[in-house]
Each structure stands twice: as structure tokens, then as C-alpha cells.
């Protein structure tokens, strides 16, 4: 009983760590993007300020589902983050860091948010949710195919074990071992994080930030927290799956930072796709590339 409690506490610690890590790195990244745009940029802890400011405000609610959805969203994401291994050997629930848990448990959070947004009664929120789900339909399939290849090669769907597999001498990181798949994964990751050109579902100037249109104050703050943890989960997934996991926490943070910053830099030079362009894009090249990669790797055995 005690060790289960301890595990859960560790899990909460992981989630908290993820939140702090991602929020800081996001702040730093705002500076990075600002530099790209020849600006000075905000303080590195600006994201924290934003979130706590939101939590301090007096918000409005549109009924119980509006609040319930937010709680479910944040709860689901915290729950998901608790499973995330930080290094390839450190995680809260040893042996249960199954890839599918992340993919699907994260969906509870998404569903909660979508539900809450639609519950607000604002059509723009529903449109945003529609776009978010459509985008999800677009990027998820190519990504899953690449991960399928990895799972098939390593014979395990545990993130830490996939990480360890890459650390064995002779095996290279999957980003290098499966180069085509790696590129697909990067594109899919940009879709997951809602970075340009795939930020169609936020589109502030078009649909007034989509799902978040009716949020203010604490609900928005909680969604921000949720967003940060989601990003933490998704980027960590990438690190574990494609960049050889992490032997220690420093390496993890470094890899994490590199991935996230690189994505931000890429995204800062793009415009925005229309929603059907997103779908068409992902179902054209990334999917073909992912299938090609899977075929080469699984049936021909060509893994670098």
C-alpha cells in the first residue's frame, strides 16, 4: 500500500516536473522566437506569470459541464504525465510506460477540453474543436505507423525499453535508424503541438482561438497548465522514441530542449494551413513516407 502511494506521489512529482520544465522551456522559447523576429522577448518565466495571473482572475462559467470538462482535461493529462519516464530508468510506475497509454490517456484530456469548450455554447469553440479533432485525425496516423515500426523492431511498446534499446551499443537512435520515419515524426509532432503550419485549430484571428474562445481566468489557467503538460508528454514521447531516451535527467532536459526549440524555430517561419490542407498534407507525403519506412524496416529489414 505504502509503495503504491509512493509511486503515485512520484508520479505527481513527474507531472509537476514536466509542468515546470515545459513552462520554463516555453518561456525561453518565446525569447528564442522573439530573437528570430528581431525582438527582445519576454522574461523566461513569463509563462508562469501568465498562468498564475489567469488563476488569480475571476472567471465566468457556462454551466457545470464547462467546469467539469476542464477538470477532466487537466486530470487526464496529469494522469498521463504520471506514467511518463523521465530517464530510461526512472519513472513512477516501472514497466507500465506503455506507448498506447500515452496516446489514449492523453485523449481523455483532449475529450474533456473539447467537451468543456462545446459546453460553452460558443460556435467558434465547436469549430475549433472540430478543427482540432480533424488535425488529430491527420497527424496521428502517420505517427502511429512510424511508432508501429519501432515497436515491431524492438518488440516492446514500453517507452523506457525502447529508449534502452537505442542505447545499446550498435543500435543508433531511431531518428537516424529510421530517417524517413524520423522526418514524419517531426512533422507529426508539430501537428500534435499545434505549431504552425498546423495551428489551424487555434487560429486566433480567424476563429478567435478556437476551443479556448470562452475561457478566461482559472479555467483558462488550468487549460494552460494542461497544455504545458501535454507538450511535455508529446515532446518526451519523441525523445524516448526517436532520440534514444535519456541515460540521465540532464541529457533528457537537453534533448527535450533541443527538440522543442527546433520545432519552434521551424514553426516560426511558417504561415498557417487551411484545415483541409492539413489533412491532405498529412495523408499525402507523411503517410506515404511512413508506410514506406515501415515497409523497408519491417519487411526488408533495412534499419541503419
Amino acid at each position: 500500500m505504502i509503495d503504491i502511494l509512493l509511486m503515485i506521489l512520484t508520479g505527481i512529482g513527474v507531472a509537476l516536473f514536466g509542468f515546470v520544465l515545459q513552462t520554463s522551456i516555453a518561456g525561453v522559447n518565446r525569447k528564442v522566437v522573439a530573437r528570430v523576429q528581431k525582438r527582445y522577448g519576454p522574461k523566461w518565466y513569463q509563462e508562469f506569470l501568465d498562468i498564475f495571473k489567469l488563476l488569480s482572475k475571476r472567471s465566468v462559467t457556462h454551466g457545470w459541464i464547462f467546469d467539469f470538462g476542464v477538470i477532466m482535461a487537466l486530470g487526464g493529462i496529469i494522469g498521463t504525465a504520471m506514467f511518463m519516464p523521465l530517464t530510461s530508468s526512472f519513472m513512477a510506475f516501472d514497466g507500465y510506460d506503455n506507448f498506447f497509454i500515452f496516446v489514449y490517456l492523453i485523449a481523455v484530456g483532449m475529450l474533456g477540453m473539447a467537451m468543456s469548450a462545446s459546453g460553452s455554447g460558443n460556435p467558434l469553440a465547436s469549430i475549433g474543436v472540430m478543427r482540432a479533432l480533424t488535425t488529430m485525425l491527420a497527424y496521428e496516423v502517420p505517427f502511429m505507423i512510424v511508432v508501429l515500426t519501432i515497436i515491431k523492431i524492438t518488440g516492446t511498446s514500453s517507452l523506457s525499453e525502447i529508449g534502452l534499446f537505442q542505447q545499446v551499443a550498435g543500435n543508433s537512435w531511431f531518428f537516424i535508424a529510421l530517417p524517413i520515419g524520423g522526418i514524419v515524426a517531426v512533422m507529426a509532432l508539430m501537428g500534435m503541438l499545434g505549431k504552425k503550419p498546423f495551428e489551424t485549430y487555434i487560429a486566433p484571428a480567424e476563429i478567435a482561438s478556437g476551443p479556448m474562445v470562452e475561457y478566461g481566468g482559472k479555467q483558462l489557467g488550468m487549460l494552460f497548465i494542461m497544455h504545458e503538460i501535454t507538450v511535455f508528454i508529446e515532446v518526451s514521447l519523441f525523445v524516448h522514441l526517436f532520440l534514444g531516451g535519456a541515460e540521465n535527467i540532464v541529457l533528457f532536459i537537453v534533448k527535450y530542449f533541443v527538440v522543442y526549440t527546433a520545432l519552434n524555430i521551424i514553426s516560426s517561419v511558417y504561415g498557417r494551413f487551411k484545415i483541409d490542407q492539413v489533412v491532405l498534407f498529412f495523408y499525402k507525403w507523411p503517410l506515404i513516407m511512413a508506410i514506406t519506412q515501415a515497409f523497408i524496416a519491417i519487411y526488408l529489414g533495412w534499419v541503419i
Binding site: K43, P204, S209, M212, V213, G216, L220
Partner: peptide, 11 residues
Amino acid sequence: LGMGPMATPRQ
């Protein structure tokens, strides 16, 4: 200054 544009009055 930490300022930024927002889309809706709620935010």
C-alpha cells in the same frame, strides 16, 4: 512587458 494580443474578451 509581458503584454500580448488576445482573441476574445474572456481571455
